[in-house]
C-alpha cells in the first residue's frame, strides 16, 4: 500500500473519531428548561367565550383516583402570583370574571404537579358541583417535572369527557427555589397567553 493511501486512511480514522458525535449539544442551564407549551381545541370558536370562573384553589393530580385534589404544598406567595397572573392576562385579552358558575362560559382550573407526572388522560375535579360535568383531558402525553403549572380552560357547557379548550403547561417552574421565581412565574404565564392570540378573538 502506498504512502499516500496509508496516510489517507489514518486521516479518515482520525476525522471520524473527532466527528463521531451526531448530536453535539450543550449542557442545559436551569433557565433553559423553562418551557411554555400551549395546546388548543382546533374546532373551538373562542369568540363564543368571554366569561370565566376560576377557583382560588390550586390542584394537583391524584394518581390513585385519577382526579384532582387540592395542592397544599404551594406557598401562599406562589399561589397568589399564579392566580393573579392568570387573572390579569385573561382580563387583558377581554375575558370577564364572574363568581356565579351559571354565568360562566369557561372554567379555569389551575394544577401544580407535586410529583413527576406523565401527562395525558382525563381528570375529574372537586369543582364538579359547578355542574354539569367538569372532567377534562390533557391532550398530549409527556413526562413533566415536579412543580409544573398547568392552566386548563374548560367549556362549562360540555357534558362529556374531552380535552380542555385551551391548555398551558409551564414545566417544572415551582421546583426552583431561587429568588427569581416570582418574576419567572409572571414571565411564563404572560408567555402562555401571548403565544395564544386566538384566546382574545372577538372580544
Amino acid at each position: 500500500m502506498r504512502k499516500t493511501t496509508l496516510s489517507l486512511i489514518i486521516f479518515i480514522a482520525a476525522a471520524i473519531f473527532i466527528l463521531q458525535s451526531c448530536y453535539p449539544g450543550d449542557e442545559l442551564t436551569y433557565s433553559d428548561t423553562d418551557i411554555v407549551a400551549t395546546f388548543y381545541d382546533k374546532d373551538a370558536d373562542f369568540s363564543n367565550y368571554d366569561t370565566y370562573i376560576m377557583s382560588d384553589t390550586i390542584y394537583t393530580f391524584d394518581d390513585e383516583s385519577q382526579s384532582l385534589i387540592p395542592n397544599d404544598d404551594i406557598s401562599l406567595t406562589n399561589k397568589t402570583t399564579i392566580l393573579n397572573g392568570i387573572e390579569s392576562n385573561l382580563e387583558n385579552i377581554g375575558f370577564n370574571s364572574t363568581s356565579n358558575p351559571s354565568d360562566a362560559d369557561v372554567v379555569i382550573a389551575v394544577v401544580v404537579t407535586s410529583s413527576t407526572w406523565v401527562g395525558g388522560g382525563c381528570y375529574y375535579g372537586y369543582w364538579y358541583y359547578w355542574y354539569p360535568y367538569y372532567s377534562w383531558c390533557y391532550p398530549v402525553y409527556y413526562t413533566y417535572d415536579t412543580g409544573t403549572i398547568i392552566i386548563a380552560m374548560i367549556d362549562r357547557s360540555v357534558t362529556e369527557e374531552r380535552p380542555g379548550l385551551w391548555i398551558a403547561t409551564i414545566n417544572g417552574l415551582l421546583s426552583d427555589a431561587s429568588t427569581e421565581l416570582q418574576s419567572r412565574i409572571n414571565q411564563n404565564i404572560d408567555q402562555a397567553f401571548s403565544q395564544s392570540p386566538y384566546l382574545g378573538e372577538g372580544k
Binding site: 453535539p24 449539544g25 450543550d26 442545559l28 433553559d32 411554555v36 400551549t38 388548543y40 398530549v140 380535552p163
Partner: peptide
C-alpha cells in the same frame, strides 16, 4: 452536521395544535 441553540417559539401543527416556547436545540445530520 448543522446545530443551533436558540430561545424562541415553535408552532406545532399537531393534533391538537399548539406552540412551545423555550430554549431549543436543533440538530441535522
Amino acid at each position: 452536521t448543522m446545530y443551533e441553540k436558540v430561545t424562541g417559539l415553535t408552532e406545532l401543527n399537531t393534533d391538537p395544535p399548539g406552540a412551545i416556547y423555550g430554549t431549543q436545540e436543533n440538530t441535522i445530520n
